[in-house]
Nucleic acid binder design. Structure first.
Lengths: 84, 84, 84, 84
DNA sequence: CGGACAAGTTTGCCAC
DNA sequence: GTGGCAAACTTGTCCG
């Protein structure tokens, strides 16, 4: 390899970095699939997946933040006459 | 309350589903953070993070590439009546 | 080209189909970009883009359907003690 | 009502934004439907829709491919200090 | 912090 | 009509 610029890049070090990342990403994929399985199973038991996701999202969302979002929405909806 | 879907949602079953998902998502977050750490560490060692991400992405694509090509071939063969 | 199966595909006809589709997709992309521009401009005028998107989505959604979704959500939230 | 953000949201301005977006989205839907029609017509003429979609997708990728390659090259050159 | 990029989520379509 | 595949939209993250 031609040595360009700073380039004291150890081939082995670079390979190690890449492989560590790829290893983690595989692990992440496993978990992602597990989550999908849980939703699928729930669906099989009659649950509404979209609603479940909404619940999970809401619980993750900070309460104050949620109120803030609601307030903005309400402001706009009111301006548009979408409220009562 | 209006009865939606099969309903008579078991509180415990629902809670179990939600908590299993949240547990998996926490595990996923740990891994996501690990990946970020690896990139940060690499950056500290003088690597260009954007380039690293590009490499990882390319290797992922290359992996999928072969399958993609095969799928295309099969599609055409099927369209031409060369399969079964 | 080898004549396989039914294959009386006119090269010109195929090309025409493909190009018509690609032409439409370009037009679609223009509109998509226009929409992005409107949101950007609104953002520049101090609007909350996320809230705007929510409004648009809600107005698109049928009222009855929305109530249905809300009912499911409420059922779950109640089961989890997220209400009151 | 709570004052959110800059607020004093002009009802007319907001309505205008929303309606412009909705107008564009309708236009987009028309095009989307046109595309569907083209595929349907092609199907009626004996074409394999899945294969057509594959072709369109591939041609789009090929177009982006060159730009992608250039971007990768630039990224590396930049990382190696060969730019600027 | 603003704009680009990537990830994740949702929706639509086609085959079975 | 269900489940898997692919497109589109949304959200979040990262770099400048």
């Amino acid at each position: 390899m031609t040595d360009v610029g700073h380039n004291s890049v150890s081939k082995d070090q670079l390979r190690s970095i890449i492989e560590r990342i790829e290893h983690e990403e595989e692990a992440k994929k496993v978990i992602t699939d597990d989550i999908k399985d849980i939703y699928s199973e729930a669906k099989g038991n009659g649950y509404d997946v979209k609603a479940l996701r909404t619940i999970v999202r809401m619980r993750k969302q900070d309460a104050g933040e949620r109120a803030e979002q609601d307030a903005i929405l309400e402001t706009y909806m009111n301006a548009l006459g979408m409220l009562a």
